[in-house]
Amino acid sequence: LIALFYSSGYSQSDITVNELKDHIVFLTSEKNAGRYPGGKANKRIVKYLQKDFKKQGLLSFKNNYKQKFKARLRVEKGAQEKPLVRTSNVVGYIEGNDPNLKNEYIILGAHYDHLGLGGPSSKSNKKNTIHYGADDNASGTAALLEIAEKIAANKKELKRSIIFIAFGAEEQGLLGSKYFVENPLVPLSEIKLMINMDMLGRLNQENHVYMGGAGTFPDGVPFMQNLGKSLGLTPIVHAGSVGGSDHVSFYAKDISVLGIHTGGHPQYHTPEDTVDLINFPGEKKVTDYIYNALMEFVTTDYKMGFIKQD
Rank of each mutant, 00 (worst) to 15 (best):
V242F: 08
K40I: 13
P83R: 07
M304S: 04
H208Y: 14
E296Q: 12
D254Y: 07
T87V: 11
Y10A: 13
G305P: 14
S161N: 10
N226T: 11
I147M: 07
S8E: 06
G133I: 00
V181I: 10
P281L: 07
G215L: 05
H261V: 08
V17Y: 11
G9Y: 09
E296W: 10
E182F: 09
Y268W: 13
F61V: 01
Y105S: 02
L84I: 08
I255K: 03
V25A: 12
Y105V: 01
D98R: 13
Y112T: 00
Q67L: 05
K303D: 13
V25Y: 14
H23F: 12
N103Q: 09
H261W: 15
G215H: 05
Q12L: 08
R72D: 12
H208T: 11
Y65A: 06
V257L: 04
G232C: 13
E146M: 04
S7A: 15
L174V: 05
Y179Q: 08
V90A: 12
I2V: 09
I191N: 04
L258P: 04
S13M: 08
K62M: 15
E76V: 09
H247K: 07
V85E: 09
P187Q: 05
A166F: 02
K68I: 09
A79L: 15
P184S: 04
N292Y: 15
G140Q: 04
N100A: 10
K253Q: 11
L203F: 08
G109N: 14
D301K: 14
V257K: 01
L203C: 08
L84V: 11
S122L: 05
T287D: 14
A152N: 02
G176M: 07
M197L: 10
Y210Q: 04
K159V: 02
L203V: 03
N103M: 10
G213K: 01
K77P: 13
S139N: 15
M211D: 06
L117H: 12
V257A: 01
S256F: 06
L59F: 11
D276Q: 15
F53H: 05
K21C: 01
H265Y: 08
Q205D: 15
I147A: 03
S29I: 05
P83I: 02
I151Q: 09
D288E: 10
I236F: 03
I147H: 02
D288Y: 04
E272V: 06
L20N: 01
H131L: 10
S124E: 03
E170N: 10
G212Q: 01
K123C: 12
M304A: 02
G220L: 02
I2K: 15
A3S: 15
D198Q: 07
D273M: 00
I106G: 04
T129V: 12
Y105L: 06
I195E: 07
K62D: 11
L73R: 09
L108S: 04
L58C: 09
